[in-house]
Design a protein around this nucleic acid. Structure first.
Lengths: 244, 244
DNA sequence: CGAAACGTTGAATGGTTTCAACAAGAGTGG
DNA sequence: CCACTCTTGTTGAAACCATTCAACGTTTCG
């Protein structure tokens, strides 16, 4: 059971270093204190001072900021194997909120656990640092998309990146993956209106590139979609120098 | 001379912890190996594998990504006291490029220097971690602006944030600061065309809020601008919990 | 002096939002 | 079980905002 819950993170890190038994054990230890959270109820509220960080074991989460006018900007989605609120451990207050998109299973992580891990299994610590660094690179990529990619390219890039991340943790293939996001979620992530997301998806569908229906993304023409998005997955599967 | 060059970073960190003589010395040591770079010539090229990080001592820099279609998205500006390319030390390749906006003075930082600092002056290491964390929060704020703020608000927010950062290192006041950015730089940062930046600036000027002329930003109505931007500087001057 | 970079303004074009209406499915309570 | 509501997805039309294209003024610099 533990092995199943930890598997997303294990699989992700295994793509970069071969994990020893000792490191696998340490990973499992990180997945103690698991909790179940219902969909839709915010995990950490913007401005909250309590320090909590989690590893996401199952389900999808989005991290977002609410604007004074009520509109929402989703900064990133978290899928199994990802961290939640790493920064709120460092800074006193969390600067954004987390909301489970689906029901989730998350394991609380304390400052102490992190210290322990770095002391006892430094290679594992380095691998996790690498993953955190990759997350930051994704935020930058997202920013670039919002500023300088037109909507079709933006959407194509988004769906491809999500797919690549899911493949990395064994939750999808190049051809399809299940995706619990509503068009409204996607709109809030891509900086569009929900109506326009619908139209963009229709265009991509009519061009035979990709469909999103009934919670499932089906990539009909991978090459074509990559070409449209000018998608370079380099920033997702780079080997970290710390691991040499 | 050393004291002058190091002063921006010193001033920034002093806002959060009282620096001991020993820590001040360590800071100066970090500013050895200073180099002068001319304006306009890229420091680190996208995709470059060489690892180099710098502390910016004088001048302005922008970090950006070039799109395949040639358009540019500026991710952030660096001002004296900021880091350059922290992530390219962690990841093997740099995922974006740096270009000096003005002539700059930057001090090369090696992995070894970082390790030494954490070992010998851990409080200083923590303070620098805090600053890095703040930079990340700014990137997120920037992302939110691109996705969900209309152009006037975006511009107002941008000018206020820049001002607040400059005040922190002693390079400006609430009323004015000098700013070497062209309207083209601002356009590439805010995801707009240079023409539209010009129009937005005209509107803000005509509303008596702020002017940008001859490399100088003059805030005529601070309260009004803050109100328009709904600017909350909280994410800029938070005390880090690591420092207690 | 000519070229190049920066700033400024107008007019036309086009992409996105907003408003509105409707369809389909899930969940709820009478 | 069936209205009822709520969420999600879908489409059309009008309004709006930002871009593009174009032209011109200014300053700087070789």
């Amino acid at each position: 059971m533990n092995a199943i819950v930890g598997s997303a993170l294990t699989r992700k890190l295994s793509a970069f270093i071969a994990l020893s038994d000792r490191e696998l054990e340490a990973l499992e230890r990180l997945h103690q204190r698991r909790r179940l959270f219902p969909a839709g109820q915010a995990l950490v509220h913007q401005g909250q001072t309590e320090r909590a960080a989690y590893f996401l074991a199952e389900g999808w989460v989005c991290s977002y900021k609410i604007q004074p006018d009520g509109s929402r900007q989703i900064v990133d989605f978290q899928i199994p194997g990802d961290f939640l609120g790493m920064r709120s451990v460092l800074l006193r207050t969390s600067d954004h909120s987390f909301e489970p998109v689906t029901e989730i299973v998350a394991a609380e992580v304390l400052m102490r656990d992190i210290h322990e891990m770095f002391a006892q299994t430094p290679r594992l610590g380095a691998a996790i640092l690498w993953a955190a660094s990759r997350d930051e690179a994704m935020v930058v990529e997202h920013l670039v998309g919002l500023g300088r990619r037109d909507t079709d390219v933006r959407m194509a890039h988004f769906l491809l990146e999500l797919g690549a991340r899911l493949v990395l943790v064994g939750l999808g293939t190049k051809a399809e993956y299940s995706c619990p996001l509503t068009q409204h979620h996607i709109a809030d992530a891509l900086g569009l209106s929900a109506v326009h997301v619908n139209r963009v998806l229709r265009r991509l569908r009519e061009d035979g590139l990709v469909t999103l229906r009934d919670g499932k993304v089906t990539i009909k023409d991978y090459r074509g979609l990559v070409e449209l998005a000018v998608f370079d997955p380099g920033y997702l599967d780079q080997t970290g120098p710390l691991l040499n």
